[in-house]
Simulated assay, not measured.
Amino acid sequence: MMDAEILERINRGIILRTGAYLTNDHFVLSSGRHAQEYVEKALATTEPAFTEGLGDVIAKHFAEEPIDLVLTTGYGASLLGHCVARAHPLRPRFIYAGKQRDESGVSYVALPRGFRQYFVGNPKVLIVEDIVTTGETVKELIKLVNSLGGTVVGIGTLWRRIRKVNFTFPFFTLVDREFPTYAPKNCPMCRRGIPINQEFLPEPGPQKSHRMKTGTN
C-alpha cells in the first residue's frame, strides 16, 4: 500500500492542476492575514475528469460502509458528492441541502422538500464537502441528518485547511494541509517586496458581506 504522505502529495498535485491550489505567491486572506498559499474552492471541481477521480478515491475509502445517501451542500461539493455516489459500490442516492439564514441572522442548512422521503427508515448518510475550513457547514449537515432520523456514517472531503477541525464521525480528507499565515507587519513576502496577488483579493464591501451570509465551509 502506498504511503499516506505520498498519496496526499499526489492528491494535492491533482488539485494544483485544477488551478484551485495556488502557491509561491503573496495572498491576502479574508481574515486580513497574508499567506504564500491559497485554496480557491470555486476552482476545485472545474475539471470533470479530476473531480471523478477524486470522488472515486473518497468512495473507495468508504466502500465498506452501508451508505444509502450522499449528502452535500454548495455547488462544488455537490459536483464532488455526485461523483462519490456514482463510484460507491452500493450506488447510494445523491441529495443536497441549501444554505439559508433565519430572521435573527443565524445560518442553517435546509433540505429540499422532495428529498425528505429518502429519510424514511433511518438511512445511513455519507456527508461530502470540498474544502473544510471552520467545519461549520459539516456540523450543520450533521444536525440536519440527526433531525430527520438518519445516521451519519462518515465525512469525506478534498481538503481540510485547519487540522484542529475534527468530528466525532469517521473523517477522510484527501489533503490535510494547514499552511502558515502572517499578520501584515510580520509578513515575509511583504519584507521581500513581493507584490500582492490582486486577482484573489478578498471581496470588498457588500460582496464580502454576501459571502459571509452564505456561510463558510
Rank of each mutant, 00 (worst) to 15 (best):
A35C: 02
G81D: 04
R211E: 02
W159L: 05
L79R: 04
K41H: 14
A85L: 00
F119T: 07
K124T: 04
D25W: 03
F50K: 02
A44T: 14
D130S: 09
T173S: 15
L90Q: 08
S209I: 01
P204A: 03
Q36K: 09
G193D: 04
G150W: 10
P188Q: 02
T216H: 02
E178C: 12
I131K: 09
Y75E: 06
K41D: 12
R17Y: 06
D176Q: 11
V138N: 03
T168G: 12
F119Y: 08
K208V: 01
A63K: 13
G149A: 07
H61N: 12
V125Q: 07
V128E: 10
S78H: 07
V152P: 11
L144P: 13
C190F: 12
G150N: 04
F62P: 12
G205H: 02
K213C: 03
V165L: 10
V152W: 13
R17E: 11
T151Y: 02
R160V: 09
E5L: 01
R160T: 07
I162H: 15
T157Y: 15
K124I: 00
W159F: 15
R161Y: 09
V138A: 15
E140Y: 05
A42I: 01
Y38T: 05
I194S: 06
T157L: 13
L79Y: 09
Y108G: 03
V125S: 04
S30L: 00
I14Y: 01
N122Q: 14
R192C: 03
M1W: 08
G193N: 11
E52W: 11
